[in-house]
Each structure stands twice: as structure tokens, then as C-alpha cells.
């Protein structure tokens, strides 16, 4: 450890012009390369997040990779375990809401909300795919009006944050 503990007296820094330039050019090259990587990666990986409403009402989005979120309607879930095909319908939820659990409940039970049929292939049915779960989907809207999802993420807020967890204590029927 001896070499690690000695202290050098402060010496004024010597500037070597050409050395600095070399480091500067090298640094700029690296920076340029990584900036290019990040920009091109952003272009390739970007997914526009939108509501079911926005997607369905705008025909420009057909065939483009987008990310949407909606409330899963439990009765519509069909799972073909043999061929790993999942079909279900989601209902529109707005981007801003007070309480996710309540919003999902409202969306899944209100037939006037915009609905969208979703098809996921080659995926095992996720454990969380159930009534009133929030589905976050990446994929493309097909010309026939169904949504072909390549990625399916689910959130079930009821389990993590009950809207009113104490209800069950006072209400034996709940």
C-alpha cells in the first residue's frame, strides 16, 4: 500500500499544446459517435404512447408501431394455449386520471367507451391478464381494425394500491 499513500506536492500543470489537441479530437470523435448512436437508436426504438381513442380515430397510425394502454375487459379474454394466441378487448382510458383502479373499473364496465380488439401471438398468457387490469401494449393497428401486439405489459393496481383498502374491515360483505 506504500505507493498508494504518498502525497505529491502540488505542481503547476504543464500545458502541452499538441497533447491537448489529440485528447480534444479523440474526445469529440467519441462524443460524435455516441451521439449518433443515441439519435439513431432513439429513432429505431421510439414508440409513441397514445390512448385507444387517439389511435382508433386517426387512420394515419395504421401500420405504425405505437404504444397504447387500456382497461382489459375480462369476458373477452380468449387464450389458445396450444398455439399461444391471446385475444382480448381493451377499453379506452384517458392519460390523466385520479385513481387508476377506479378509472380501470369505470372503463371496463362502460360500454360507451372506445374499445379495441387485441391479438397477441407467441406469448404465454400472462398471470396478470385479468378483468380490469391495465394493459400496456406495443404493436401496430391492422387495416382490419384489430391491434397486433408484440409486447404486453400488465398492471393490476388493485393489488398494489387498494382504492379504499379499509372497506373490507368495516363491511363484512365486501
Amino acid at each position: 500500500m506504500a505507493e498508494a499513500t504518498w502525497e505529491k506536492p502540488a505542481a503547476p500543470a504543464v500545458k502541452t499544446g499538441s497533447g491537448r489537441l489529440k485528447f480534444l479530437i479523440g474526445g469529440l470523435l467519441i462524443l460524435a459517435a455516441v451521439t449518433y448512436l443515441i439519435i439513431s437508436g432513439t429513432g429505431a426504438g421510439a414508440r409513441y404512447f397514445m390512448t385507444v381513442d387517439e389511435l382508433v380515430k386517426n387512420p394515419d397510425y395504421v401500420g405504425k408501431t405505437v404504444r397504447i394502454s387500456g382497461a382489459v375487459i375480462g369476458d373477452t379474454i380468449q387464450y389458445d394455449a396450444r398455439n399461444l394466441i391471446i385475444n382480448f378487448t381493451i377499453a379506452n382510458i384517458p392519460t390523466e386520471y385520479e385513481n387508476l383502479a377506479e378509472e380501470l373499473h369505470a372503463a371496463a364496465t362502460d360500454p360507451s367507451r372506445t374499445q379495441l380488439q387485441v391479438r397477441v401471438e407467441n406469448q404465454v398468457k400472462p398471470d396478470l391478464l385479468q378483468h380490469e387490469a391495465q394493459a400496456i401494449l406495443t404493436g401496430t393497428l391492422q387495416p382490419d381494425g384489430t391491434f397486433q401486439a408484440t409486447e404486453l405489459l400488465l398492471k393490476c393496481p388493485t393489488r398494489f394500491e387498494e382504492a379504499d383498502p379499509g372497506k373490507v374491515i368495516t363491511n363484512p360483505e365486501a
Binding site: I38, G45, A46, F49, R67, E151
Partner: peptide
């Protein structure tokens, strides 16, 4: 990207795995 796009572009953009699989390997 998600926060800036939401704050300044009025759009909600997330970057998926494709982004990370493209950008991180060279580094």
C-alpha cells in the same frame, strides 16, 4: 426521452428494448 417528449413535445414517447440493444452493445 419519455420525460422530455412529454414536457416539451406534448407527445408521450418511450424507448423500447430496440433502443438499448442498439445503443449499449458498442459501449
Amino acid at each position: 426521452a419519455p420525460v422530455i417528449s412529454e414536457l416539451f413535445m406534448g407527445e408521450d414517447i418511450t424507448l423500447g428494448q430496440d433502443y438499448f440493444l442498439r445503443v449499449t452493445p458498442p459501449l
